[in-house]
């Protein structure tokens, strides 16, 4: 960093004395100098791996017979592979439930916290945000314990009503078990983003609305929510990307419920399993690439649908 600066500074200074026509060149140069370092990292750790994954995914490696070029066979296989499809279907289903749930909760909390200004509200804001500071892996470890029917609190809570505690790690309920973990983990973070956006709204707008006879509910629905729509869209995009590549939580809970959470539970886990446990990097890459493609298409489609509201792209 210091190296770059010292090299660049004299050149830039010398340039300021040159004639007008050259300013343009200088601007090109300076722009690229600022963007360049990131550009190099971008090429090395994003473009190159993507290209390489694409290349790898065109080959096939067998225990007997070695490696051979198969063109798009891995993709044909992936999109007819019940493991990949069921994993993709799971994350899609999960996204459809989890994302709206998290955002509705986050929005409700943000609106409440925007309206209530007591000391307790400020305390709550921090506490609700707290889980974001917990690595998802640790969060999953913690909830794994809490879900235990023998020594987690569930048995105590359900025992109060004389009921038997549900097993959130069983195949029937794992969906809800994971839903709870991700909501706990992310709702607070989304709430903070929405809250920050709400705080950025000019209070005079509320005054005007109140003059026109709008109630608190109407102000929330008619003014606050539309004004923070870009923030909502941003959150949606990020949660969509995050949920479609679900990995950490189920991977950790596998230690507790290997029967419920198979190695092909989500596409990302399946890709990991293929690449790192079965040494099939080619098929693993194909799955990764296919997943990346699906995510890209989903997000782009979403942004296209909401293009009128977004100011962020």
């Amino acid at each position: 960093m210091t190296l770059l600066t010292s090299k660049r500074a004299p050149r830039a200074q010398a340039k300021t004395h040159k004639i007008r026509g050259k300013v343009h060149l200088r601007e090109h140069l300076m722009g690229w100098l600022f963007v360049g370092p990131f550009g190099i990292v971008f090429l090395a750790f994003l473009i190159a791996p993507l290209a390489y994954a694409l290349y790898l995914s065109l080959f096939k490696k067998q225990l007997i017979g070695g490696t051979s070029f198969v063109f798009l066979d891995n993709y044909t296989k992936a999109f007819t592979d019940p493991s990949f499809l069921s994993g993709a279907w799971f994350v899609l289903r999960f996204s459809l439930v989890a994302i709206p749930l998290q955002i509705v909760i986050a929005l409700a909390m943000a609106l409440i916290l925007d309206a209530v200004t007591s000391l307790f509200a400020r305390f709550s804001r921090l506490m609700i945000f707290l889980p974001y500071a917990i690595p998802t892996v640790i969060g999953a470890v913690m909830w794994g314990f809490l879900y235990s029917r023998s020594f987690g609190p569930l048995s105590d809570v359900f025992g109060l009503f004389g009921a038997e505690a549900p097993d959130f790690l069983s195949s029937n309920l794992i969906f809800y078990g994971l839903l709870n973990i991700t909501t706990w983990q992310w709702a607070g973070y989304y709430m903070i983003i929405l809250y920050a956006a709400l705080q950025g709204i000019e209070p005079t707008l509320y005054e005007a609305a109140r003059m026109d006879g709008a109630g608190k509910w109407q102000i929330a629905v008619r003014i606050k929510i539309p004004l923070i729509a870009p923030a909502l869209i941003l959150i949606l995009v990020f949660s969509l990307i995050g949920t479609l590549q679900f990995f950490n939580e189920p991977q950790i809970l596998r230690y507790l419920a290997a029967g419920t959470i198979g190695t092909d539970f989500t596409p990302n886990m399946y890709a990991y399993q293929q690449a790192f446990a079965l040494a099939n990097f080619n098929y693993g890459s194909a799955i990764s690439f296919a997943l990346g493609g699906v995510v890209f298409i989903c997000v782009y489609a979403f942004l296209f649908i909401t293009r009128k509201r977004r100011s962020f792209l």
């Binding site: 314990f145 235990s148 029917r149 023998s150 020594f151 230690y255 507790l256 419920a257 290997a258 029967g259 419920t260």
Partner: peptide, 18 residues
């Protein structure tokens, strides 16, 4: 039972005579 083995849940069950 149909509990995954070697998990804390299972150990707890073995300890508690499940």
């Amino acid at each position: 039972g149909t509990q995954d083995q070697f998990t804390p849940e299972y150990i707890s069950g073995v300890i508690n005579g499940k």
